[in-house]
Design a protein around this nucleic acid. Structure first.
Length: 948
RNA sequence: GCUGAAGUGGUGGAAUUGGUAGACACGUUGGACUUAAAAUCCAAUGUCCAUUAGGACGUACGGGUUCAAGUCCCGUCUUCAGUACCA
C-alpha cells in the first residue's frame, strides 16, 4: 500500500468536519487554553505560502494542548471590512459584500486543505451586521464613558453629569481636551442642552472634535498616525497633508500610563514591548510658563530638564504656534510670515528628510525669565513641532544639541551652567554627570536634586509644575469610506445622539457608487435612505429631513441626519477575540458572562509584528475600557504573543537592453544599458535558467523578444529576495504544493524552514526532504504485505529512541522551536527503521507525537493500527527516563581543552568511580606517549577533564 | 543618531545553564538497482596538509576571562527591523 496523501488528507478533513472534532466546549472540567491567530483580511489574491506559517504554528500548539488534556479554543474568522474591497468596488461597481464573500470562500477552501483544527462554528466576520452590531455598541460605551484620573478608570458619563450639576467642574480630575473652561454647578445648570453636550464631548472617551488630521487626498480619507509610514500612506504610498476636520476621536491618551504599565504583566517579545513603549513615549519633566513682555500672554513649555532653567537664553515656538501672530513685532512681521509660508509649503516628508538645515526667525518679542526676570528673545523654528508637547520649548543651548546648533547659527548667547564642562564645541547633555553652576539656588546640585528644587521653586511662583508628557495621540476614528461599520449616531442641532442598543445594528445602506459625493461628502452621503426616524426608530429616506431640523430652528419631525463617516479598520479587530468565546446567543450579547469568565484572556496569540502600534495597542485600549465598565474581567487581552516572521519570495529578474526587445542573460550584462524586469518564478528552474518559450508566451509584449544566451545556450536570470507579492511574480501558491506533496509535507516544511520568528525566503526545492520523511514514516508502519506493526515487546533500544523523542518534542513545542522537532522525527524514524521496530508500544505513541505536525498521516496510521477514535483524543505520551538511566553514555575525555579519546561509562557512576576509571585510561595513554599521567577532574553532569 | 535582533559549511539551519561545533535537510560527487529514466537505497561532503595513520586551522574581525568560549567580558565592522528634530 502506497502513501496516497491526496486521498488520506481529503478523507480526514471530511472526517473532522463531519464529526466536529475540534469544536470547543464552553462547559468543561478540563483546564482551558485559548490559542488565537490574527484573523486574515480576505484579499482577492488568495493565500500564498507565507500566510499559513503562523496558522501552522498555532495549530501545532493547539493540537498539542488537546493531547495534553486541555479544553482548547482555536477559532478563526475574517477581518472583512477594508480598503481593497472598496477600491475594487469603485473600479468595477461590484458590491464589496459580494467580492468579500467570494474571497472568503477561496480562503476557506485554502485553509481547509491545509488541515487546520479550527472550530469554525464560532467564525466571525467583522462585516456581518450581527457582528458589527456589537462594534457599534462598544462605540456607544466609549461615548457614555469618561476617564477619572483619581480612580484611574473609565466611569459612566452620568456620574460626571451629577458632579457638574452639584459642584461644577473645578474639582474634577478627568481626562479631557486642553483648555477647558471652569464652571460652577449653578452655571452648569443654567447652560442650555447644546452647551452642556459640547462640554461633555470634551470629556467623553470617544468625542467629536475639530482636529488637525492626516488627510490623504489620493485615498480621499483621513488616516491614523500608525497608518502613515515615512510621511506617506502605508497603503499606496500617497502623500499626506495636514488638515482641520471635524472627526470622531478615541481618547486613548487617557490610558497612556495603564497601557505602559500593562506591558509589564504580559509575555511578549522585548522588541514589541519596546515599540509600544516608544509609541506611548512617556517623558517625565515639568511644564513651565513664561510671561511675554508687553502682552498679557503666557508661553507654556514642556521640559525634561527643569534643572537647566538658568541656562535658557532664548525660546523657540513652532511656526504654527497660536501666539506667533499675536506677539510678533511689526518690524519682524514680514520675515516671520515669509518663514511660516515657507514651512507650510514643505511637506511632512521634506521636513523629515532635511533635519540638518537650521532655519528660524526672530519674532521681535521677549519673554521674561521666571527667576532672573531677564528678557529672553522669542524665536520661531521648524525644529519645534506643533504636535508634540505644547509646541514651544525653552531653549538651553548649553544642554541640548539642537538648541546649541540653533544658537550658534543665529549668534545667540550660550551661557554655561555646568560645573567643569567645556561647551565650546558641543552641548553637554549627560544627566548623570551634571553639576549645576551659575544658577542661583541650584548651584552645586546634581540633576536629580536640581530638578526637584527647580519644580518646587516654580510652583512657589505659580509658573510651573511637575508634569509627565506622552507622545501617544488620541486616535482619529472617522473614515470617509463606504466599506466599514456605520456609526450608531444621528445629529440633532449638530450634536451627536446615540442610537439605543435595541435598534442596532445600523446596517450599511445601499449606494450606487462607492466614491465620495461631488460635494466631497463620504460615500454614505450618496445613500437615498440614510436618516434616523426617532418616531419609529428606523432608518428612513433622507428627503424626509426638513431643512429646519438640520439648522435647529423650525418644527421638529423627529427625523435627523445620520453620521456619514464609517469606522476605521481597527474597530472590528479590537474586540473579536471576545466574540469567539460566545457561540449560542450572539444576538443577545457581545459575549456572555459565563463564556467570558470561562475563557478569560487569549493564552497564546500568533501574528505579525507589523501590528505593534495599531491593532495590538487599540485592542488593549478597548479591553481596558470594557473592564472598567464591568463588561469583562481581564485587563490584558493577550497573555503571550509570538510574532511569526515573514516568508519572503525569491524573485527572478531578466535583463532587457533599454528600449529594445533584446534580453541578455545575467552573465553578459556587463557594459550594457539594461533594465531589470520581474519574470514569473514558475518560468525559472532551480539552476536559474529561464524557460524561454514559456517566457515568450507569458505576456503578449514578450512574444517577439530576442534572447542573447550564455555560451552554453542557456539564459540565466538573477535572483533577489523580496516580499511575496503578485506584482513581483514571486508568489508560491499553497494549492500547488498540497497537490504535489500534500498538506502534511507543506506543514512540516514550513516549520522546518527555520525558526518561527525569523524572516526567511521560500525555496520549494527543499520540500523533498520532509516529503521523503513522510514516505519513510509510512513505510515504517505499512509494508508491501500490509501492516508492519504487532504486539511484540519493544527492544530497549527502541524504547530509548521513543523516549528521547518524547522529551525533545515536548521541549521543542513548549519553546516554539518547531523546526528542530521536525529533525527529531526524522532521526527517530531512521533509527526505528534501522532497528526494524514493529512494536505497537513504540509506534503508536510516536504517531501521537507527530500528529500535531502532520495530522492527516498520523490519523490514517492510527486508524490502521485499529483505533476507532480520532488521534486528537489520544493523550500525549509521557517522557519516561528509566530506560535512559540504565543505559550508558559516551564521556569525552579532554586534555588541555582538546578531545583526545572517549570512553563509555554508565550514567549512574559516582564521581570517584569515574575518576578512577578515567585515571586508568590516562595512565595507559601516558605510558604509550612516554610522559607522566595528568590529574583527572570530574565535574558532575559535565565532561571529564584531565588537567596538566 | 537612538532602540532592538542577528552575523556558524555551497544553501536553510542545529548546538540545554560555557562542555565532542556543523545535528537534520537541501545541494553536490560516487556507487547499487534499472535497457533507460523516475523512485528508492548506500557512501562521501567545513578548509588546508598528508598515500595512509594522522595533523593543523576553523562559528564576522581584534583582544580578554576560563581546564574548556559559537555561547561570557571589552573594542571594531557588517546586516536586518523599528523609530526619529520628542524638548
Amino acid at each position: 500500500m502506497q502513501y496516497d496523501f491526496n486521498k488520506i488528507e481529503a478523507k480526514w478533513q471530511k472526517y473532522w468536519a463531519e464529526h466536529q472534532t475540534f469544536k470547543a466546549n464552553n462547559t468543561s472540567k478540563k483546564p482551558k487554553y485559548y490559542v488565537l491567530d490574527m484573523f486574515p483580511y480576505p484579499s482577492g489574491a488568495g493565500l500564498h505560502v507565507g500566510h499559513p506559517l503562523g496558522y501552522i504554528a498555532s495549530d501545532i500548539y493547539a493540537r498539542y494542548k488537546r493531547h495534553k488534556g486541555f479544553n482548547v479554543l482555536h477559532p478563526q474568522g475574517y477581518d472583512s471590512f477594508g480598503l481593497p474591497a472598496e477600491q475594487y468596488a469603485i473600479q468595477t461597481g461590484q458590491h464589496p459584500a459580494v467580492t468579500t464573500e467570494a474571497n472568503i470562500k477561496t480562503y476557506r477552501r485554502q485553509l481547509d486543505q491545509i488541515g487546520f483544527s479550527f472550530d469554525w462554528s464560532r467564525e466571525v466576520r467583522t462585516s456581518n451586521p450581527e457582528y458589527y452590531k456589537w462594534t457599534q455598541w462598544i462605540f456607544i460605551q466609549l461615548y457614555e464613558s469618561y476617564y477619572c484620573n483619581n480612580d484611574n478608570k473609565a466611569k459612566d458619563i452620568n456620574e460626571l453629569i451629577a458632579i457638574f450639576s452639584t459642584e461644577g467642574n473645578t474639582k474634577v480630575n478627568a481626562a479631557c481636551d486642553d483648555g477647558i473652561e471652569n464652571f460652577t454647578a449653578k452655571e452648569w445648570n443654567s447652560f442650555d442642552i447644546v452647551k452642556q453636550q459640547k462640554i461633555l464631548l470634551q470629556y467623553r472617551l470617544t468625542y467629536l472634535a475639530e482636529t488637525e488630521v492626516n488627510w490623504c487626498p489620493a485615498l480621499g480619507t483621513v488616516l491614523a498616525n500608525d497608518e502613515i509610514v515615512n510621511g506617506v500612506s502605508e497603503r499606496g504610498g500617497h502623500s499626506i497633508v495636514r488638515k482641520k476636520m471635524t472627526q470622531w476621536s478615541m481618547r486613548i491618551s487617557a490610558y497612556a500610563e495603564r497601557l505602559l504599565q500593562g506591558l509589564e504583566t504580559i509575555d511578549w517579545t522585548d522588541s514589541l514591548k519596546e515599540t509600544q513603549r516608544n509609541w506611548i513615549g512617556k517623558s517625565v519633566g515639568a511644564s513651565v510658563s513664561f510671561n511675554v513682555n508687553g502682552h498679557n500672554e503666557k508661553i507654556e513649555v514642556f521640559t525634561t530638564r527643569p534643572d537647566t532653567i538658568f541656562g535658557v537664553s532664548f525660546m523657540t515656538l513652532a511656526p504654527e504656534h497660536e501666539l506667533v501672530s499675536i506677539i510678533t513685532t511689526p518690524e519682524q512681521k514680514p520675515s516671520v510670515n515669509a518663514y511660516i509660508e515657507a514651512t507650510a509649503k514643505r511637506s511632512e516628508r521634506d521636513r523629515m528628510a532635511d533635519v540638518k538645515t537650521i532655519s528660524g526667525v526672530f519674532t521681535g518679542a521677549y519673554a521674561e525669565h521666571p527667576f532672573t526676570k531677564k528678557p529672553i528673545p522669542i524665536w520661531i523654528g521648524d525644529y519645534v513641532l506643533a504636535g508634540y508637547g505644547t509646541g514651544a520649548v525653552m531653549s538651553v543651548p548649553c544642554g541640548d544639541q539642537r538648541d546649541y546648533a540653533f544658537a550658534k547659527h543665529f549668534n545667540i548667547a550660550i551661557p554655561n551652567i555646568f560645573e567643569g564642562v567645556d561647551i565650546s564645541e558641543v552641548a553637554f547633555s549627560d544627566k548623570n554627570k551634571t553639576i549645576i553652576a551659575n544658577s542661583d539656588f541650584l548651584n552645586g546640585m546634581n540633576y536629580k536634586k536640581a530638578t526637584k528644587r527647580a519644580i518646587y521653586e516654580l510652583e512657589q511662583l505659580g509658573q510651573g509644575k511637575g508634569k509627565t508628557n506622552y507622545r501617544l495621540r488620541d486616535a482619529v476614528f472617522s473614515r470617509q469610506r463606504y466599506w466599514g461599520e456605520p456609526f450608531p449616531v444621528y445629529y440633532v442641532n449638530g450634536m451627536p445622539q446615540m442610537i439605543d442598543l435595541k435598534h442596532l445594528p445600523i446596517r450599511l445602506p445601499e449606494v450606487e457608487k462607492y466614491l465620495p459625493t461631488e460635494e466631497g461628502e463620504p460615500p454614505l452621503g450618496r445613500a437615498n435612505i440614510w436618516a434616523w426616524d426617532t418616531n419609529t426608530n428606523t432608518v428612513v429616506a433622507n428627503e424626509n429631513i426638513p431643512l429646519g431640523a438640520v439648522e435647529g430652528v423650525s418644527e421638529d419631525t423627529g427625523i435627523y441626519p445620520l453620521e456619514l463617516n464609517t469606522m476605521p479598520g481597527w474597530a472590528g479587530s479590537s474586540w473579536y477575540f471576545f466574540r469567539y468565546m460566545e457561540e449560542a446567543n450572539r444576538d443577545q450579547v457581545f459575549a456572555s458572562e459565563d463564556a467570558l469568565n470561562y475563557w478569560g484572556n487569549v493564552d497564546l496569540y500568533i501574528g505579525g509584528a507589523e501590528h505593534a502600534t495599531g491593532h495590538l495597542l487599540y485592542a488593549r485600549f478597548w479591553v481596558k475600557l470594557l473592564k472598567d465598565r464591568g463588561f469583562v474581567k481581564v485587563d490584558e487581552p493577550f497573555k503571550k504573543l509570538i510574532n511569526q516572521g515573514m516568508i519572503l519570495g525569491t524573485s527572478a529578474f531578466v535583463y532587457r537592453i533599454a528600449e529594445t526587445h533584446q534580453f541578455v542573460s545575467k552573465g553578459l550584462i556587463e557594459g550594457r544599458n539594461v533594465q531589470a524586469i520581474h519574470a514569473d518564478v514558475s518560468l525559472v528552474n532551480a539552476s536559474d535558467e529561464l524557460d524561454i518559450e514559456g517566457f515568450k508566451n507569458w505576456r503578449k509584449e514578450f512574444t517577439n523578444a530576442e534572447f542573447i544566451t550564455e555560451a552554453d545556450g542557456v539564459f540565466k536570470v538573477s535572483r533577489d529576495v523580496e516580499k511575496m507579492s503578485k506584482s513581483k511574480y514571486n508568489v508560491v501558491n499553497p494549492d500547488a504544493i498540497c497537490e504535489h506533496y500534500g498538506a502534511d509535507s507543506l506543514r512540516l516544511y514550513e516549520m522546518f524552514l527555520g525558526p518561527l520568528e525569523q524572516y526567511k525566503p521560500w525555496n520549494t526545492a527543499g520540500i523533498s526532504g520532509v516529503h521523503s520523511f513522510l514516505k519513510k514514516l509510512w513505510k515504517l508502519y505499512i509494508g508491501e504485505n500490509g501492516l508492519n506493526v504487532n504486539e511484540n515487546a519493544p527492544t530497549k533500544e527502541s524504547l530509548k529512541t521513543l523516549h528521547k523523542t518524547i522529551k525533545k518534542v515536548e521541549e521543542d513545542i513548549e519553546n516554539f522551536s518547531f523546526n528542530t522537532s521536525v529533525s527529531t522525527f526524522m532521526i527517530a524514524v531512521n533509527e526505528l527503521t534501522a532497528q526494524k521496530c514493529t512494536s505497537k508500544t513504540i509506534l503508536e505513541p510516536l504517531l501521537v507525537l507527530i500528529s500535531p505536525y502532520a495530522p492527516h498521516i498520523a490519523e490514517e496510521l492510527y486508524h490502521l493500527l485499529g483505533n476507532e477514535k480520532s488521534i486528537s483524543t489520544a493523550a500525549f505520551p509521557i517522557f519516561d527516563a528509566s530506560h535512559l538511566v540504565e543505559s550508558s553514555k559516551n564521556y569525552p575525555i579532554s586534555f588541555n581543552g582538546k578531545t583526545r579519546f572517549t570512553i563509555e561509562l554508565p550514567m549512574d557512576m559516582t564521581k570517584d568511580a569515574i575518576e578512577k576509571e578515567v585515571m586508568a585510561h590516562e595512565k595507559t595513554k601516558a605510558q604509550l606517549d612516554g610522559r607522566a599521567p595528568k590529574k583527572v577532574i570530574v565535574v558532575p553532569g559535565k565532561i571529564v577533564n584531565i588537567v596538566g
